[in-house]
Amino acid sequence: MSAFLTVNNLSAALHGYDQRVLRSVSFSIDTGEVLGLVGESGAGKSMIGKAVLGILPSAIEIIEGEILLDGQDLQKMKPADRRRLIGATAALIPQDPLTALNPSRRIEPQITNRLVDILGWGKTDARVRALELLNEVHIDNPERVMGSYPHELSGGMRQRVLIASAFAANPKLVIADEPTTALDVTVQKQILRLIRELQERHSTAMVFVTHDLGVVSKVCQRLSVLYGGKIVENSSVPDFFTGPKHAYSRALLAATPKYTDPDASLLPVDEAVIEAVAAEVLASDKEWRHGG
């Protein structure tokens, strides 16, 4: 199968600064495949998702590289065409379900608006589809939920609604940006299972952004480890958990709590490892400057 999303050599920087926040990032995802992006806070994992969806903050600009979505180079498209392509083929599952729904609108239009406004569906068809989706995310009384306002639903319910909304238009690519971080542990598990279920059923390509390696092992087939906006290791999930190649990856893995051995003490990532990986990232900057 051909890659649905290809990111080539993508670099981004704060507007007017030389310092890169994404450093020559390259990866690709096939249809039906789930790629985990892992790294600590500030490693740039969410930013990659934002770059793909065209929602980078205005202070950050893409300075180099290309993003191919369904074979089309997003950077070369007219903004209106790019918006439509992204809206029609890709979707975001956001991090915080409490803030990702518009508080002054009912749930129904928040699920159907993309279908009606962007894809030109009829209102009735969109409503039928929305009910079907709410069933798919295991909401018991979809009719009532459709007529509710966000503040009337729990966090877990809202995340289900957001997942339904993301899968509404049968997207070929879903970017899940830490979709379980804001939820409590019991709900987390259900939501993860749900996302996986829908992803498999629709054979969606998915980028799964998380800092939780435990989640990666359950959901993803491949993963990329980020540090300082640079991918330091690409690996398949089985290979990674049996033998990570990069020292930083090994340290990350060692720092993950193990359910099999709850008494083991938690190791912080060794400072020497951090220094080494930081030096590596900076060295790549030098190389990049000379090359460019």
Binding site: L53, G54, I55, A80, R83, R84, I86, G87, A88, A90, A91, L92, P94, Q95, D96, T99, A100, L101, N102, P103, S104, R105, N113, R114, D117, I118, L162
Partner: peptide
């Protein structure tokens, strides 16, 4: 800057639509 506004951008809406129908009512 709120999440639901950003989310509506990813759905393919134009800047004008995002301002008028997502942000303004709130």
């Amino acid at each position: 800057h709120l999440d639901y506004v950003t989310l509506s951008r990813t759905k393919g809406y134009s800047e004008n639509h995002v301002i008028l129908s997502e942000a303004l009512p709130n």
